[in-house]
Amino acid sequence: MFGLDYSWLADPAYQNWLVTGVINTLELAALSSSVAILIGMLGALGLSLRVFWLDALIEFFVEVFRNTPPLLQMLFAYFTLSTLGLKTTDPVTGLEVPLLSAFACACISLSLFGGALAIEAFRSGLETMPKAITEAGRSLGYSRWARFWRIEVPIASRVCLPSLTNILTNLFKTTSQASVITVPELMYYAGQIYNDTFRTLEVMILILIIYVVLVSILSYGMSRLEAYLTLPGYGKGQ
């Protein structure tokens, strides 16, 4: 079809690479998304406490990670953290190796990047909280912590679900950049396959489609979740 040659797909070795790549991509995305959401919630809670120094530190963190390329963040984590002393000695070979694997570096830097974006999303979710609700919680004797987890998070998370969807799909797409620091995810194996087969165009088209399908599934799932969690008469363009 269109003069494209996909005969290499029949080779079990390449099939294996693709499957491994997808699994590693999913793993990387799932891990860093979870941590990012956690960072987002904690960060937003921190901001809602209105403690000026905490507020300042969180804002600093958010702005630094939002305004620099995630690729550069990853490269920095990978190449320079080991230089700065995060090294260990391999007990078998006796050689000095970086303490953190490429996968761990990618995971940490993606989590921080996603976390910075998530803090913003959760913060704006909390900001739209009607004052009456916080006051009601307070007058019922909830502590700050209980109010946050039992009242504000359930309401705010629904409001910020659309922007959270954006962040998670964005983060999923960004995982492809981990290939640059040799994390063996889907994009990395794409390179391996076309280096082997020289079918660059075919491989890239296939990989692009796989990513689009995976991201579409994620965003469809999130939109279903949104629909499921919608509160009648709350949120929605108000």
Partner: peptide
């Protein structure tokens, strides 16, 4: 919107 920037950039390189 659902394709990763890096992958799209790579694909354009060859397409």
């Amino acid at each position: 919107r659902n394709s990763p920037w890096l992958v799209l950039l790579f694909a354009m390189l060859f397409i």
